[in-house]
């Protein structure tokens, strides 16, 4: 079994053999993953979406999440691929049109390196949650509050409804007001 962390797994997922064969067009990148329990197993659902750098400050276009890939954790056994454009729950989403801008207000003050460092820090928090769930490692209310705070800073608000539609529990724990 690979020892890659959740952050490393997400960052390299585009060239995973399973993902390569999912037929996602060029340009789709992994968003922030969703931790969920499926049949008593911890799983990682990785959404895929597009961004379009326009060259204009804070006007990188954010497109809707269109695909998801789900794997068990920590085994990383791929258990699912979904094209949301064929999911009735997303019937009203126009996947060809941008739904928001990046940088959003919460990160407008951050330079690229600073933003990426905070995003990495957030992804590292996922491993803490996984360790708590799998091994009973210590995970305090402060840890959860910290992850929630990072999530609400890093995630583009335009993606909130999509995350809510993908996983109400995850949304309620980390993103809901």
């Amino acid at each position: 079994m690979s020892k890659l962390s959740i952050r490393e797994t997400v960052q390299h997922i585009n060239t995973h053999d399973f993902v390569l064969h999912c037929n996602m067009p060029l340009g789709y990148v992994p968003g922030l993953p969703i931790l969920k329990i499926i049949h008593d197993e911890l799983c990682l659902q990785v959404p895929f979406l597009k961004y379009k750098v326009t060259g204009q400050p804070d006007q990188t276009l954010v497109y809707p999440i269109r695909y998801t890939v789900t794997m068990t954790w920590p085994e990383k056994k791929m258990i699912g691929f979904s094209n949301l454009s064929y999911d009735p729950a997303f019937a009203q989403v126009d996947f060809s049109k941008a739904i928001g801008f990046f940088r959003h207000d919460a990160v407008k003050h951050m330079k690229k390196a600073e933003y990426r460092a905070m995003r990495d820090e957030l992804l590292d928090q996922y491993d803490k949650v996984a360790a708590a769930l799998l091994e009973g490692a210590e995970y305090t209310q402060e840890d959860e509050a910290h992850m929630r705070r990072l999530m609400q800073i890093i995630m583009e608000p335009s993606l909130y409804p999509l995350y809510q539609a993908l996983d109400q529990d995850f949304y309620g724990k980390y993103l809901a007001e």
């Binding site: 990148v29 992994p30 968003g31 750098v53 060259g55 204009q56 804070d58 330079k111 690229k112 390196a113």
Partner: peptide, 10 residues
Amino acid sequence: SDNAFAPVDG
């Protein structure tokens, strides 16, 4: 660019 980039590279 520090003002015009994407959250994730790809």
